[in-house]
Each structure stands twice: as structure tokens, then as C-alpha cells.
Simulated assay, not measured.
Amino acid sequence: MMTGESAALPTRPARSPALVVLTSGTSGLPKGAPRSQAPSLMVPAGLLSKIPLRGGERVLLSAPVFHGWGLIVATLTLTMGSTLVLHRRFDAGRVLTDLQRQRCSTLVAVPTMLRRLVALGDAISAADLSALRIVASGGARLDGALVAQVTAALGPVLHNLYGSTEASYISIATPEDLAEAPDCAGIPPRGTVVRIADANGTSAAVGVEGRILVHTPGQIDAYTDGTRKSDPDGFLDTGDRGHLDAAGRLYVAGRSDAMIVSGGENVFPEELEMALLAHPEVADAAVTPVPDAEFGHRLRAYLVRADSPAGRDALDEQAVRRYLAAELPRSRMPREIVFVDRLSRGSTGKLTRHTLDVLQEEHK
């Protein structure tokens, strides 16, 4: 077939090639986020300045390649002449085996995968992971408790990337950042600007929470349906709320559209989720607001017990409430706690809107 082909170069297309990456669809139907061929090297350079990937190594990529986080790592890995190790489905035991057998220097995953990996416990302690120098998490929020667990199990190798399909990556926390501030999302790399906007749209002071607006080298201007994403000033509203500290580190509080007002208090379901996931006998957790005639909204928590004697036998509603009372203010307490066998998550580890709708219908 190749011998019959012409050696002439193909005709240059009339327009630059484009890549369309679909959003995760956790809040509805996925949208297409198009990107033309990038003339700038700021996107790969910024990521490599925080996550020191090298050529000639082996990278175990567990994050899905069809989403932005996995795609950018796959592209960089192959461009640098390294080898990608891929599995069709995530299995923590197989990941641990291949990290050893393939002598992988890097593991790229989402938080749910890391949670399942550290749950292997003694198997990690017995494994030879001397080649592993980078564990990179992205695609969903990484809580401080999981940061501590991963660091204890694998050493100071964890990196936390915060980004979105529309913006590409926004900030990256290095192991040094996470040692000082385990809940942070890191510092924006060169070329990326993060601004925290208050209710009036002006820049908020250090430590003051507001909308997270970003300007990145890899952001889109509009979706494929023509809906604009970036504002006229070039900044993109991530849909998240958070704040910056004095060192320039970003902290993400939660989704703007997920914040509820309960009894006059602004409450983020993610804050309660992070506290629940830090409980050693909780395997998974999801928190969702439900209408309440008295308070406007109330929080309902869905919990999956850990597969351990303590989880199966001792974790009940009262035990959870005693634990939360020591961790969070009363306004963050769930009015209802529901135990379920499992929580179905998407490929990026996020709960889909469909999953939450089904749970709401089953537990009215």
C-alpha cells in the first residue's frame, strides 16, 4: 500500500487543525471545548516547570486519555520519547504490580484512584517503588487527608493539578506546597494569571473568598456550539470559588453553583465531603443539598462503609455525627446520613448528575 503512494507532501489545509475535548458532563451533557493548533510552548513548559517529567522513562497513565488531564500527559510523554503504560480499566492491585514490574517513574491518576491505591496498605509497604519519583493527581479535588495518606505510603512525590477542560491546567501544587498547605491547589505556573473576584467583580484581598477567574495559555474562547466562555477582558470564569494566600497558593472551596444557603449560612457540600472522606472507615462519600421548608436547603450525605470490621460493624449514623462534631461547625452538619453499597463515578472519579438524581429519587 505504501509503495503506491506519492512522496509529495499533502496540501496544507485552509485552516489550522483543531482538537475538540469534551467536558466531563458531571452537571449535564458534555460540551465540546475546541482548541486550534497552539503557537506557544507555554502550555507544556508551564506543566513541566511544576511536574518534572523526563524523556526516556515510563509513565503509568491511569487517568482517562479522552479527558484533558490524561491527554496532556499522554501527549507530553510521547513527545519526550518516554513510554506510556496503559490499562483498559483501573485496578489498584494491577497498578501496584506494573509500577514495580515496569519500573515506572511516574503515576498519573485521579483522587479516587489514589484512594483505592493507598487502601492496599501493607502491599504498598512491601513493594519496590524505588523508581517512582512522581505521583500526579488531577481531574477532581484532592483533599488534605488523602494527601497525607499518599505521602505516608509513597513518600514526598505527590503533585496536585487543578484545572478544567475549558482552561487547561490552572495551578499545580508541588510536594513542597503540599507539605506546607495540604489543602492547597498550588501556585499558577508562568503564563497563567488567577484573579479572585468579589460580588462586584473587583479583585478580592488575600484570604478573601470569591469567584476564581483565570487567564491561561490553553483556555478556550467558546464551546463548539458557539456559547462564549471567556469574558471580553480575556478572563475565564471557572465556576469555582476559592481564595489565594499570601504565598500565592490557590485554595478551591467548591463550585459556585453548588453553594447553598442553609439557615443564613453559605455552605459548600464539598467541605463536608472532604471531612467524611478523611474518616478511616468511610470508603466513599457524596453530599448533596435537598430542599428544606425551614432552612431553605439541608445537606444529605451518602456514605459507603469501608470493607473492614470497623467499617462494617461500628460505623453507624451516631458514630459519623460524633466524628463530624469534632471536625466541622454545626452549620455544616448533614441533616440526613444515608448508607449505600456503592457510589457510581465517571471516568474522572467525579459523581455524575445522573448518579445524584437516582440517589435523590431512591431516598426521598
Rank of each mutant, 00 (worst) to 15 (best):
T224V: 07
G263Q: 10
L61H: 10
E166F: 03
R141G: 10
V338S: 04
P13F: 02
G55E: 12
M113G: 01
S344Y: 04
V108I: 15
P34N: 02
L48F: 03
P64H: 08
A283R: 15
L107C: 13
P289V: 01
H159E: 07
L47E: 05
R312C: 08
R88H: 15
D177M: 03
H363V: 01
S36V: 00
A205R: 13
C104D: 10
H67C: 06
P111S: 06
D292C: 11
L154R: 02
A310R: 13
K31H: 10
R345T: 10
R345M: 10
E273T: 12
A247W: 00
R15N: 08
L154A: 07
S24Y: 08
A148S: 12
L41P: 01
W69K: 02
H243L: 05
P291Y: 10
H159M: 11
I212R: 11
K229C: 04
R228P: 01
R332F: 14
G346Q: 12
E265N: 13
A306C: 03
A199K: 08
D122S: 15
L47N: 02
S36Y: 04
M1Y: 09
G191H: 02
I260P: 02
P188F: 03
L213I: 00
R101W: 05
R115H: 12
P188R: 05
P280I: 02
V304Y: 07
Y323F: 15
P30C: 05
L250I: 01
E271A: 12
V193T: 14
L48D: 03
S347N: 07
Y323E: 09
A145D: 08
M259S: 03
V43S: 03
Q100I: 07
R103A: 15
M80F: 14
I187R: 13
T216L: 04
G68T: 11
D128A: 10
L359S: 10
D307T: 06
R195I: 07
S331E: 13
R353Y: 02
Y323V: 03
E362K: 15
A246C: 01
D341M: 08
G264T: 07
I220E: 11
H159K: 07
G239T: 06
A253C: 09
E176K: 06
I260G: 02
S125K: 12
K364I: 00
A319I: 00
L277T: 04
S230I: 02
E166V: 04
V21E: 14
G4A: 07
F295E: 06
A185W: 00
T352K: 14
P30Q: 14
P17G: 14
G248Q: 07
G218N: 03
P232N: 05
V208P: 00
S36P: 00
E317N: 08
T11G: 07
E5A: 14
R89T: 14
G81T: 14
D357M: 13
R342F: 06
G191Q: 02
Y169Q: 10
A301M: 03
R312T: 05
V118N: 11
T216M: 09
G207N: 10
A74H: 08
M80P: 05
S130N: 09
A205P: 01
S344A: 14
S171H: 08
N160P: 11
A92E: 09
L61W: 10
D91N: 15
G46F: 01
R94Q: 15
V135D: 04
A18S: 13
A127V: 12
K350S: 01
